[in-house]
């Protein structure tokens, strides 16, 4: 994971036909042009929808409903951002998303998944691998299948309309993150824990004093992915959280849209929706901007063959 993603010298890349001495043939020129055209068209298809979201957030209704489309709204209504944000208690939604869901969920996931991953990688014991494969297999049980019975369980516990059904299970580890952390823990030399054991350290000491400090990159990826997973989650809060005062951002955006669908005379429906969408995705863009390498390399790990 700390390894570079592309350590291979570019001249040895599979698609490479370049030989520095020889000038390119016409066919190679055409291939290059086609390749970059496709690349740029794809890049546009990924960026344009988000640019359009942002630019529409700055428009008024007249600018939205006009043809041909306006790419650079002038005048730009920057006030749409605070106005849309305050049209519903989005600050409350954001605080709920952060402090009632995303942060406790992330803490629970990282803590429990590290402990479990330690048991699956740094300890030698009978049945370890059997249980690990069972753990991996549970990734295939879809949430939809557990959703109905879990709802009944949490209803009996009077946990509906709280964040407990979303946060408490996180403290029992998540197979995907257990797998990622295990892959990383396995790369740490066993001599480190062996010598600590000789010095009388307990396994928990070894985990918290040796393994975790050495696993900062893996812990970063797992924390970021868990945080983003909770921040982006829609179905979980939809099922368990019903009071508007407890809404998360995803539910807030949906509820804003619903007020517009039911009352189509409200002004600036689309600009407001796009403004709120922009604000909801903004933290993700910032996290991604700073952590994209860590991120992408972390996800790459899940594809590594055993």
């Amino acid at each position: 994971m700390t390894a570079q993603v592309s350590p291979i010298p570019s001249s040895r890349q599979p698609g490479s036909r370049t030989n520095k001495r020889r000038p390119w043939t016409v066919g190679e020129w055409i291939a290059e042009i086609v390749k970059y055209t496709v690349l740029i068209l794809l890049a546009i298809s990924f960026v344009m929808p988000f640019y359009w979201m942002f630019s529409s957030a700055l428009k008024n209704d007249a600018q939205v409903y006009v043809a041909p489309p306006i790419w650079f709204p002038n005048p730009a209504y920057w006030n749409n951002f605070p106005d849309a944000w305050n049209s519903q208690p989005f600050t409350q939604y954001m605080l709920n998303t952060l402090f009632l869901y995303a942060i406790p969920y992330t803490i629970g996931t990282v803590l429990s998944s590290s402990i479990v991953a330690y048991g699956f990688s740094r300890l030698q014991w009978k049945w370890r691998d059997t249980l690990f494969y069972l753990c991996l297999a549970t990734m295939m049980v879809p949430f939809q299948v557990q959703m109905v019975p879990l709802f009944m369980i949490f209803k009996r516990l009077h946990w509906i309309n709280t964040f407990l059904p979303l946060v408490v299970p996180a403290f029992f580890g998540s197979p995907y993150y257990i797998f990622m952390l295990r892959q990383f823990f396995r790369t740490i030399p066993t001599e480190l824990s062996d010598s600590a054991r000789i010095d009388g350290a307990s396994e928990l000491d070894i985990l918290f004093r040796i393994i975790l400090p050495l696993s900062r990159p893996a812990l970063t990826v797992v924390s970021l992915l868990a945080f983003i997973g909770a921040w982006n989650d829609y179905l979980g809060p939809l099922v368990y959280v019903h009071d508007q005062s407890k809404f998360v951002l995803a539910l807030g955006v949906e509820s804003l849209r619903r007020t517009f669908t039911f009352n189509s005379t409200i002004a600036n429906a689309y600009p407001y929706l796009m403004a709120v969408s922009t604000l909801v995705v903004l933290p993700i863009i910032i996290i991604f901007f700073f952590g994209q390498r860590v991120f992408i390399e972390g996800i790459s790990m899940t594809g590594i063959k055993e």
Binding site: I115, G119, L123, W125, K126, L131, V141, V145, F172, E203
Partner: peptide, 27 residues
């Protein structure tokens, strides 16, 4: 060793019983 191993993976194991096996059985 087995006891220690089970102890470390127990969060997942208990979660597996509570949030996967029991829901599947009850549904």
């Amino acid at each position: 060793e087995i006891l220690l191993g089970f102890l470390f993976v127990s969060p997942w194991l208990i979660g597996f019983l509570l949030w996967t096996v029991y829901p599947l059985a009850s549904s």
